[in-house]
């Protein structure tokens, strides 16, 4: 099958949905890119080039916005309520704080507070994650905050296939979706069908099957977990890797199904450890699978610090395959493990 990059997969999802549905519009900082400069209108396509090429294919439906996140995220919420399906790009999730009212108090609440009479089919695309030396204000993994808010859906693709399918699902969904793109994954290639397709929300992907330990990993961490599992397989430890794909809704059932079989859990989460996806999933498993557990669940996360600017420290900050493998060994063989 054809292979394209994670970035191309998102671009293709946007293009196909814009083609299919005239109410889909795209806007954000530099999404059109340098508008007013003849011949170079789509020179940018967003800060990383994800929307490149759409401006000319869909005249009038790809808009640049001022550097005013609270204004254009509010505009997206309003547009969604009045008949459009906006996909707004908020460059880095680190900047989301200036529009929490629009997201938490408005978009997430419309359907609930208007008695189910309002729909808010909007998508906010945003980059997250460390790894490009962009320091503390451009490198955070803030998806736990949005997962916490009822009324929002949160998608975090780990592969080009999932990126395209989850994006199409996000655009067709009638609720606000925060779509997290790990900037380090943009260049990753994978098999992606040319046709349009969806990946449903709330269904985890069994990336690898195994009987000894369940590793739940999110976004970029999935490929790290795969590397760890490969190494552990050499020593006879078989890992089962689950990628939740969406953290809201969360496919709890598949996680429990796996842990009931393996009896051991490692959660890998690039965000800070307190009130994180890792702590949430570990707590859910502790509550719901206590009888099955042969060892205390382990979390592999970033430390409780901002992402450092120093390359050496940044590399040490992000969970890596070695730390994942060590955690898996610990729950299988270590002092914490029960026979």
């Amino acid at each position: 099958m054809r292979r394209i990059t994670f970035m191309q997969a998102i671009n293709e999802a946007l293009a196909q949905e814009m083609e299919r549905d005239p109410t889909v519009v795209v806007f954000g900082e530099d999404n059109a890119g340098g508008a007013g400069a003849p011949g170079e209108d789509d020179a940018w396509g967003g800060v990383m080039g994800v929307t490149k090429g759409l401006y000319h294919s869909f005249p009038g439906r790809v808009l640049d916005t001022p550097i005013s996140e609270s204004a254009f995220i509010g505009a997206a919420a309003g547009a969604a309520c009045s008949g459009l399906r906006p996909v707004a790009e908020l460059m880095f999730v680190d900047f989301m704080g200036v529009c929490f009212d629009q997201i938490f108090n408005q978009a997430a609440k419309f359907r609930y507070m208007f008695g189910g009479k309002a729909r808010t089919p909007m998508v906010i695309r945003t980059m997250y994650g460390a790894g490009i030396r962009a320091a503390g204000q451009h490198s955070q993994s803030l998806y736990p905050i949005f997962t916490h808010i009822p009324g929002l859906k949160v998608a975090i693709p780990s592969s080009p296939y999932d990126a395209k399918g989850l994006m199409i699902q996000a655009i067709r969904d009638d609720d606000p979706v925060i779509f997290f793109e790990n900037k380090v994954l943009y260049a990753v290639e994978g098999e992606v069908p040319e046709e349009s397709y969806t990946v449903p929300f709330g269904e985890a992907n069994f990336v690898r099957e195994g009987d000894d330990v369940t590793i739940v990993a999110i976004g970029r961490m999935v490929s790290f977990a795969e590397q760890a599992a490969e190494e552990l397989a050499g020593d006879g430890i078989e890992c089962e890797i689950l990628d939740p794909r969406t953290t809201s809704p969360l496919d709890e059932e598949s996680i429990y199904e796996s842990v009931e079989n393996t009896g051991r859990l490692v959660v890998v989460d690039e965000s800070n450890p307190r009130c994180s996806l890792a702590s949430d999933i570990a707590a859910l498993v502790a509550q719901n699978c206590f009888e099955d557990l042969k060892a205390a669940p382990k979390m592999v996360t970033a430390p409780h610090t901002p992402p450092p600017f120093s390359p050496t420290l940044e590399d040490a900050y992000v969970p890596d395959p070695e730390r994942i493998a060590a955690a898996a060994r610990e729950v299988v063989e270590g002092a914490g493990a029960r026979a």
Binding site: G165, P193, E195, S196, Y197, T198
Partner: peptide, 11 residues
């Protein structure tokens, strides 16, 4: 998974 991937194609 393969059957589901097929079924989730548009059309």
């Amino acid at each position: 998974n393969d059957v589901l991937k097929y079924k989730r194609l548009d059309g």
